[in-house]
Design a protein around this nucleic acid. Structure first.
Ligand SMILES: [Mn+2]
Ligand SMILES: [Mn+2]
Ligand SMILES: [Zn+2]
Ligand SMILES: [Zn+2]
Lengths: 152, 152
DNA sequence: TTGCTAATGCAAATCATTCTCAATAAGAAG
DNA sequence: CTTCTTATTGAGAATGATTTGCATTAGCAA
């Protein structure tokens, strides 16, 4: 029982950082969530497991996790940020202007764009955020049909 | 000389809004700038021509112009928004993480992505923001020269 | 176990953006 | 041109998100 069986701790050590219960918790909440949480929602979730965790720690941890490449920040139309744990392949987002729903999708075309730009401009592309917006199928139907509920 | 020779005023009237000197000025500043200005920089520019224009009016006008499709808002890595006048064709952005330089580019591939997604998900895509980040040619050179960082 | 110091909780501070409200002025009507 | 309605403005307070200072705690290397 003396082996370092803790991958996450190793990752933090490699980055010269300490792994605290709060950090582990925040990352867990993000990894288990299928939504794009904002800081406050994340804080609420985390408080279920650690009622004393502070919002400041949430923000500080998000910054750390982002720096370590474990978490991504998104600006999805709202005035504040949303976060999600980084998964295997990249993916992109569509936000419905009517109901706020977010659809995730992937496409090899973005890799092509990166390639094109790298060659054309001599840049090295690290990150790619594609954010489409418009109206989802349901919201289109709602609009076309008649009039009724208006949410924002 | 009695013709309504004022296109912009017509656009505003058609939108049921009033064209004020402040609004005209703000749009002019944006159209004449080749940068992606934030609200404060825009305010500073505008104050050169109208020292009394308020920051609140800048924000309010940006909202109006955005709604009218004359201006676009961008989140370019910074924690605040940047704005630019909408031009003919769409274009996308690359930000250098080293020096902050923004490179604009276009590619037909994004239209393909929009098409793909529309068909696959039945959504109607209105807007598309692609934001790449990484290091520009100069910043790569700077990095390679100084330290022993070796990659790819 | 000890010691150094990174990380935390709390509250105050900052920063960007929005709102309130009285005064002003755009533009339609006459 | 004058009048009238009310959208728009400037100033500053208010808000909401994120950050920071500081005293205390606790991770982890030795
Ligand atoms: Mn996602
Ligand atoms: Mn641009
Ligand atoms: Zn919808
Ligand atoms: Zn650069």
């Amino acid at each position: 029982m003396s082996e370092s069986n803790d991958r996450l701790r190793d990752v933090f050590r490699a980055a010269g950082r300490r792994l605290t219960p709060q950090r582990r918790l925040i990352l867990e909440v993000l990894e288990e969530s299928d939504e794009h949480l904002d800081a406050e929602a994340l804080h609420d979730q985390a408080k279920i497991h650690d009622p004393d965790i502070s919002l400041a720690t949430v923000y500080r941890t998000l910054a750390v996790l982002k720096e370590m490449g474990l978490v991504e920040e998104h600006h999805l139309g709202e005035d504040h940020s949303h976060y999600e744990a980084v998964r295997d392949g990249p993916h992109y987002h569509f936000t419905c202007l009517g109901c706020g729903k977010v659809i995730e999708f992937d496409t090899p075309l973005i890799a092509q764009v990166k390639q094109e730009l790298s060659e054309r401009e001599g840049v090295r592309v690290i990150g790619a955020h594609l954010h489409l917006s418009g109206y989802c199928a349901q919201c289109q139907a709602k609009k076309a049909g008649g009039q009724g509920s208006n949410e924002e």
